[in-house]
Design a protein around this nucleic acid. Structure first.
Lengths: 217, 217, 217, 217
DNA sequence: TATGAATGAGGATTCATTCAT
DNA sequence: CATGAATGAATCCTCATTCAT
């Protein structure tokens, strides 16, 4: 390692940190600071009282700095959702890949869904309550992000169907809507009840109910 | 019938329309006009562009008149939801009472849920999309209104459990959340897809899925 | 005079006060208050420091009231110019009609131009300095208003040419531009010199110069 | 005066221009780049959309570099005007010196005024339209720059008066204002009409009109 | 009861300028 | 000399609500 290798490495590092992300957005430590600040401020003040200046203050940057990293306020929210929901689904995916059966995979999905939101209550408040107050345009983009999650569910459902664990005539769209709608409703209720009971322990009965249905055998 | 009888009748009608309803609210023909106007205006313009003045114009009253019937804008929305959701649940209840088994009752509940929203798309848009943009406080009150619906589900679930049709160890809260969360998600997806497929025909497979679960037997 | 005549008069008065002006704009005493306030505030603070709230305060109305009478801030300025310049030209026209010869008419035009601006210094400051800082869109509309003035000049020039007082081969466009450009420059210099000399007394030499040119005979 | 004295003088001028200019301003190639960039950016985007960062980009320098050469944004504009108007007047002066009579000198002045602006339309747009949107303070300084031009006019007027070509009792201030106001108005109209007619050919009739006045002889 | 003109609080965003490197 | 990321002040307009008539 000599002077040249150092320079090359510097350039490499520099070009890395200067690299824009997939969305062509400027990145850097402040990008993450702002996202985290946004989660906190929205969770504490509610969507409609989360002024840009509050977020900037919480992030420890000037108001104007926000606009070096985000197009506008809405862009903060979309990015927040993309970042957080992206990781959210990625983590579930990782865990699922370690399981063998579709049954286990579904359980992991449910448990991880609950676990991640239970571990980050401000995020849970933001995703379950505050972000839903956003305008239709933002909600469309949120739906885009959710597609990745729905695709993951499809993978599990397909595998389960092939292994004979799930019904052969399972309607994927309905099944996805049942799983997502149920999990979402359960988490929303938990958040609205001030998170005062254990969410993760609901994973097991929830799994049984989704798999076995309401009916006795 | 003479002049006096007319005056008496007027007073009678007047005292009637002046009578407050159960919620202590003033009623009268304008009350309903305003509610209907609110549904129309919100469905057409979206929650955030549904100004009080627009609702007043649509209802054919002055802006100030709104405040003779409703405490504030939020009160219009809560009342709207109370009125509409009240009838919504009442109709489901009526139909359910005509059925014998818990299985049938659940099916009727699902079908009626879909049917009523499919029949009134503006209302569906308002309840599934627009009203969710309201602040958490309003959403709390909306949840209050939903209790009647959840109680109805409980009745069906209890009966089904007693008749042995539903699992003996069914967790009512989870079951309710699964049913409501699923139906809600299905309707929301239908609205977001511009209502371009038949919602009511999903009742049968939906019923089977909820009752039998994802699992093959 | 009876009940009916009273009602008829009421309606008449009502329809009068409700009448919008030619531009379809709401009128009323507040309309004029706001225009006057705008002239004063712009003259005192300069165009770029003339906040809507300052104008509202000066006019003795709430900020929001401004927007019942004007579309936006720019609309105040356009209206201001239309009103003031409208009267400005009208008054010149009136005076001109009382004169016999084209020579006199031109003199009256010059004198009235100077006189009206000398009598209303805040207005002079606004028209000569502040309003020129406005954006191109506003400046186009200002030009529209000026057309009436230019047409008036044309009338005088035509008459003068016909009577043989003005050159037969006079280029109207150039003549108009010379007259307007000169008067405008003279007034602007007067305003920039803090109006500290008598403007109106310049009318006579100005007239001679425009009519006779620089050349000795 | 020989070759050497020319070289010495060149060096003197050069070292002068590389150090500070008469106004105590730093000079260098970037100084001119920035001025040229400012003309282009203002002409293309308008005064209010000519951000410092745009000018810097066009000049191929960093935003901060601007402030090594100019005190602030306003200083760019003043300098722009000083530079361009300085050359503008110098060129007219040069040409005038070649003429014999006051009559010819005035004609040259008019023709050169039109010619130079017709040859550089971006500059014409900037001086006639965009720079007038600046605040009165800047406009004061612009007037300072114009003094040199007015002085030149005075020279011509004095000479003409002495030679008996211009009236003996000519008011210089009014005459200057008439000449400048007229030329300025004519050029402004030409710019606002998108420069779609020939400006220079107006010099002759314009000259006749200014010299001979509106009146027939 | 009904009206509707008037109110006034509240917030996202731009861009000239600085200064650590 | 040169850079450019960071700063932060400054303002127009909307719309729920009131109250004199």
């Amino acid at each position: 390692m000599n002077e040249w290798s150092f320079i090359l490495m510097s350039n490499l590092i520099k070009s890395c940190s200067e690299r824009k992300n997939a969305m062509g957005k400027k990145r850097g430590p402040k990008y993450d600071q702002i996202i985290e600040a946004a989660v906190k401020v929205i969770a504490e003040n509610g969507y409609h009282h989360a002024q840009v200046s509050k977020i900037a203050k919480e992030a420890g940057v000037a108001d104007g700095t926000i606009y070096l990293y985000f197009k506008n306020k809405e862009d903060i929210l979309i990015s927040l959702f993309e970042e957080k929901m992206g990781r959210f689904v990625d983590k579930i995916q990782e865990q699922i890949e370690g399981s063998l059966t579709a049954k286990d995979k579904l359980f992991i999905l449910i448990e991880m869904h609950f676990k991640q939101l239970a571990e980050n209550r401000p995020l849970a408040i933001v995703t379950q309550l505050e972000l839903r107050q956003s305008n239709p345009e933002l909600r469309w983009k949120i739906n885009e992000v959710l597609k990745k999650y729905l695709d993951l569910m499809d993978t599990v459902l397909t595998e389960g169907k092939e292994s004979g664990y799930f019904s052969e005539d399972l309607d994927f769209r309905l099944a996805r809507q049942m799983i997502f709608g149920t999990l979402d409703e359960v988490v929303t209720n938990w958040v609205m009840k001030d998170c005062k009971y254990d969410l993760v322990s609901l994973a097991k009965p929830m799994h049984q109910l989704l798999v076995g249905g309401l009916c006795s055998r």
